[in-house]
Write a protein that binds this DNA or RNA. Structure first.
Lengths: 144, 144
DNA sequence: AACGATTGTTGGCACCACCAACGGTTTCTC
DNA sequence: GAGAAACCGTTGGTGGTGCCAACAATCGTT
C-alpha cells in the first residue's frame, strides 16, 4: 500500500501535493529516458538547442535553470554520445558554442515520444480542459 | 535573470512545470524549516503522529511515502532533539512505538506557522478559488 | 517445527540542486 | 591604455532525497 492514506494535514498542503506530483512526474519521464540512456537534463538541453539554436553552456544553464557546473557534465555526456558538438567561440574565447548534431536531433525526436507518453500517463485522471487549467495555474506559480 | 525564458516546449510540459513548481515550493518550506533546524521529513512525521497518534516506523513510512531506511535517520534526529520517543512495542517486539513528546508537539506548532507562510508565498500569484482548483487537480494527479 | 513475511537497521547508489574557487577571457571604468 | 569588474568553463565538494539490497530478530501461519 502506498501513501494514499497520508495525513489530511499534508494532503491539503499545496507544497506537499506539488512535491508528490512532481515525484510521480519525474518517475514517469525518467523511466522513459532511462530506455534511451539519458536523464532529464540531457533532454532539456536538446530541447533548448532545438528551439534556440547553438548557445554557450552558461546561456543554456540560465535558460534551463541548471547550474554551470552541472551543465559541464551534461554537455560531456551528450558530447561523448555524439549528440552535441562543443566548439570554441571565436568572438568570445571564454565561451563554448554548443550545437546539436543530426544524431542529437534524432535522439530528441525519440525522447519527445517518451515524454509525451509520460505526460499522458501522468495526466490520465484529468480531462483535457482540466489539464489546460493545471498547466495555466502551474505556469503562474512558476513565473515568479 | 532566472529561467523565465525557458523553451516553450518545456514550459508547456506538465512534468516540467510540476518540477519547477515543486522546486520553488521546497525551497520556500525548507527555508522555513532550516530556521528550526529541521527538514521536510521531520515535519511530515510530526504531522502524522499528531494526526494518527503513536505508530511504528514502518507504518509511518507507509503513510508518508518514506522508505524504512530513511525513516530510521528521521526518527534518530527527532529522538535526539527530544521531539519524539522511541519505545519497544510489547505486543510485537519487532516494532518501535514512536510517539510525539510535548516538546515535539510544540515544535510542530512552530513548524506549522513556517509552512503556512511558505504556502502563502508560493501561492501569492493565485486567487483563493484558483488555489483551491490547483489543490483539487493536484490531489487527483497524486491519487494515482 | 518450519516457512514466509515484517521490522528496524546498516550501507550503499543515483539524481539533483547548490556553492566555492580557480585560471583564462572579455568588458567596463577611469 | 591600465586596472578593476564581470563572465566563462571547469573542478571539487556538500546536502537532501528517493531507492534498493541485505541482515538479524521477530511474528504469523501451517
Amino acid at each position: 500500500m502506498d501513501h494514499h492514506d497520508a495525513p489530511s494535514r499534508l494532503r491539503g498542503l499545496p507544497s506537499w501535493l506539488l512535491n508528490q506530483a512532481a515525484l510521480r512526474a519525474n518517475r514517469l519521464v525518467s523511466e522513459g529516458f532511462e530506455a534511451e540512456g539519458m536523464r532529464r537534463h540531457h533532454f532539456s538541453v536538446l530541447v533548448a538547442l532545438d528551439e534556440g539554436g547553438p548557445a554557450s553552456q552558461a546561456a543554456l544553464g540560465r535558460r534551463l535553470g541548471i547550474d554551470r557546473s552541472d551543465m559541464v557534465a551534461v554537455i560531456n555526456d551528450l558530447g561523448r554520445d555524439g549528440l552535441v558538438a562543443r566548439a570554441q567561440d571565436d568572438r568570445d574565447r571564454r565561451r563554448n558554442v554548443i550545437r546539436a548534431t543530426p544524431a542529437g536531433q534524432r535522439a530528441l525526436k525519440r525522447l519527445d515520444k517518451r515524454v509525451d507518453a509520460a505526460q499522458a500517463a501522468l495526466l490520465e485522471p484529468l480531462s483535457a480542459t482540466e489539464r489546460r487549467t493545471l498547466e495555466r495555474l502551474l505556469a503562474r506559480v512558476v513565473a515568479r
